[in-house]
Design a protein around this nucleic acid. Structure first.
Length: 485
RNA sequence: GCCGCGGUAGUAUAGCCCGGUCAAGUAUGCGGGCCUUUCGAGCCCGUGACCCGGGUUCAAAUCCCGGCCGCGGCACCA
């Protein structure tokens, strides 16, 4: 078993591409076969390859846990395509067509052969050599593969295998202006799948006609076509996956959407930046499986999988989004420092010391305005991992509470809600960016001082708030991306 | 318009090839409970689906036909 993933390096890959790539890789692995990565960069004109995309795609694949046994770049295989083209002409499977494009269309829809279809082989070879040696202009000549002219689908009839692209005008990022005759997707992919002994092709169902086209090529050459498995399209609820739509947004709003890995998009890099684990993506793709029908992946589902993976591994910290000062009276001085574990069960994560300032038994903490409301409603709350507090009064905009005890069992006795808190004076400002569709909602709040030690890229759980990924730290304000709740 | 392919709960998926064990399984969501120093996780209970209509058959989610809906393709793109 040999499978392959064959992206066009003209852009980043997205969640939709994760389906064929992960599934092809897993298939090969399952049957102890080989998996091949092949860059299909044979159109320097309408889909010019992006030099940085080759490595970016490889990085994304590696991140997804995909390892490949062989790697090819089609633009480096031009001589191979050329030599097979001569072979194809030799068996009268292809001919050089000098017709004008519109003129050919008439023959095509009329199911009639164009005048060049029966050109003698020697002349065809001569014409082909002229093509390759830059004799013709762009648009003057193509090499067509002979198919069934009466096929009900007109697009199949004598499709183009090679066309001329003026690479002085549109140089290729890898081979520059070295070649002017370029193979089309169907030719290059078809030839390579055979030459690379691909046994199973897993690709999007948009390629289903291409399979039919390529089979003509295989028939002419006496090759056997691999097994094909068509995969349905994937959507990600609330995200844009489409290459063209992302490009359009970036062109139209260059200041809003600076790069294709923006957390609002559905590229693999975007999801990685967003804080989604590669394991989550793999699970989702494997769950969707090999089916032709389309699937809309819900964000809830992604979040559920991701949350479970993150839950055990990530530190839990306190954060208050809409702070209200609460003064607690009669707090014992010995409580000016408490050590709180960073995770209730994962002891490897250790703990952190939280210092508070107790002045004459008075302690000021910040609570979320919603929690202050519960405080007033319920009468007793527990400041998580710290102490139980009784509500006293509210006046002049100040909320007053009274220390009861530190025992957790008391909190249970009082059925006190457990609330996260941040010490007044011992906090750090946190700015959280929450993507919602194409908008970014910004939430500013206060995190406990320990958050200053977080590194960029680190993911933590803010208790009762959600999982975040730190994108900027070190300064006065910590910036983070909201992953999910 | 013309070719081709699909349609199981809100979402995703299992079962369909080889009809009965499917009064349809699983995950997530939603409702409730237990547990828990989170409104998180875990555990338990509940909720909710075979697109419609015919046919074949003792028996159809599964096979056949028609309809409806959805998707893909119709490039000198990949």
């Amino acid at each position: 078993m040999r499978t392959r993933f064959a992206p066009n390096p003209d852009f980043l890959i997205h969640l939709g591409n994760a389906r064929p790539s992960i599934l092809s890789y897993e298939y090969a692995k399952m049957y102890k076969g080989k998996f091949i990565l092949r860059f299909e960069d044979t159109d320097p004109k309408t889909k010019p390859p992006l030099p940085e995309a080759y490595s970016a795609i490889k990085e994304d694949l590696r991140w997804l846990g995909i390892r490949w046994d062989e790697e090819y770049i089609q633009s480096l295989r031009m001589e191979i395509y050329y030599s097979i083209a001569r072979e194809l002409i030799g068996v009268r499977g292809a001919y050089v067509d000098l017709c004008d494009k519109k003129e050919f269309l008439k023959y095509k829809i009329g199911m009639k052969p164009c005048p060049h279809r029966n050109t003698a082989t020697e002349i065809n070879l001569e014409l082909w050599d002229k093509m390759v040696s830059n004799y013709f202009e762009e648009g003057d000549a193509v090499l067509r593969v002979k198919t069934d002219l009466s096929h009900p689908d007109p697009s199949l009839r004598d499709w183009v295998a090679f066309r001329i692209i003026n690479t002085e005008v549109n140089p290729h990022p890898i081979v520059g202006s070295k070649y002017v005759v370029w193979p089309t997707y169907n030719y290059a992919a078809g030839v390579d799948d055979h030459l690379m002994s691909i046994t199973h092709i897993l690709r999007g169902k948009e390629h289903s006609v291409n399979t039919l086209k390529q089979k003509y090529l295989y028939d002419h050459l006496g090759w056997e076509y691999p097994e094909v498995i068509n995969l349905g399209r994937l959507k990600l609820e609330g995200f844009i996956l489409s290459k063209s739509k992302i490009k359009e947004l970036m062109v139209r709003h260059p200041k809003v959407f600076k790069s294709a890995d923006d957390i609002r998009f559905g590229t693999i890099a975007s999801l990685r930046n967003r804080g989604i684990l590669s394991e989550t993506i793999r699970k989702v793709i494997l769950e969707v499986g090999v089916k032709v029908s389309d699937a809309t992946i819900s964000w809830d589902n992604i979040a559920a999988i991701n949350r479970k993976l993150l839950d055990l591994e990530v530190k839990r910290l306190m954060f208050v989004a809409h702070p209200v000062e609460v003064l607690v009276r009669h707090v014992p001085e010995r409580l000016s420092s408490v050590t709180i574990p960073l995770h209730p069960t994962n002891k490897r994560l250790g703990g952190r010391e939280v210092r508070v300032n107790i002045d004459n038994g008075n302690l000021t903490v910040l609570l979320d305005s919603r929690d202050v409301q519960t405080f007033k409603d319920v009468g007793v709350i527990r400041l998580m991992e710290f102490m139980n507090v009784k509500y006293v009064s509210e006046g002049d905009g100040k909320v007053l509470g009274e220390f009861i005890s530190t025992d957790l069992s008391d909190a249970k006795k009082f059925r006190a809600p457990i609330i996260q808190w941040v010490p007044y004076g011992g906090y750090v400002k946190v700015l959280i960016v929450k993507p919602e569709g194409l908008k970014l909602i910004k939430v500013a709040g206060y995190g406990e001082a320990y958050m200053k030690t977080l590194m960029v890229g680190e993911v933590v759980q803010l208790v009762r708030y959600g999982f975040i990924k730190v994108v900027k730290s070190g300064g006065k304000i910590i910036k983070a991306i909201y992953i999910h709740d």
